[in-house]
Design a protein around this nucleic acid. Structure first.
Lengths: 111, 111
DNA sequence: ATAGAATATTCTTGTCAAGGAATATATATT
DNA sequence: AATATATATTCCTTGACAAGAATATTCTAT
């Protein structure tokens, strides 16, 4: 999941992703819409590809980029693990503290 | 959403988040479990706080950090916009291309 | 008040990655 | 073959940021 977050952590890359939500687009279009230079767009798309967030389909000289559902699904799966905890377990904080202190006793500091 | 992605793009911060999935933890615990130095953990937690991903609850000298549901919900909302497209609209690629070319004609290059 | 424990902050240094500019590659058209 | 169009790659410079080391801050206990 780290490559995904890294890829999305760059402002222009995030803009590209949000643009592609409209549908597949060739590099030139992306550059024009976002007022970016073509080489930078190509570089960003490279990173996004490596992260599995987009995929390419050549069409003549153009390269059409589009979002890759699988990776968004993966993100969704990762997020799923966080839909449970539902915090507000603030009440159980004391409880946690006791547990932690108990652990420290038997642990010693590792190292 | 960018601050969230930026925050999660750092390996150790991502580890912290995944550790906190187990429940609230004081700084020292986090440092010990992840084999990190305390100051770095404090710094990372600062970033995570700023991104709204965690929240603090002081308890004596300790600061108990825990995940902040609201931000994960926000991420979920953002992701929701991507659950639709479902790609495989690869079939409709030609269609898209035609549209795009039509657009180019009337557009001219902006700038 | 003093000492100890837990955490935060500051300063410095090294690394990595994004942008700019130039150029290379691929495909189409004549 | 020559030229045009679309995209990719390379090299360079600069800025941001993470780690390390030292120190400051906050709270507790005696």
């Amino acid at each position: 999941m780290l490559p995904t977050f890294s890829a999305l952590a760059e402002p222009n890359r995030l803009r590209i992703i949000e643009l592609l939500r409209e549908g597949p687009r060739p590099v030139g279009e992306i550059a024009a819409r976002l007022r970016l230079r073509q080489p930078q767009v190509s570089k960003h798309l490279r990173v996004l590809s490596a992260a599995g967030l987009v995929e390419v389909h050549p069409a003549a000289q153009q390269r059409i980029y589009q979002l890759r559902a699988a990776q968004f699904q993966a993100l969704d799966d990762w997020l799923a693990a966080y839909r449970q905890f539902k915090e507000a377990s603030y009440d159980r904080l004391e409880e946690h503290l006791n547990v932690l202190q108990a652990m420290e006793k038997q642990d010693g500091r590792p190292d």
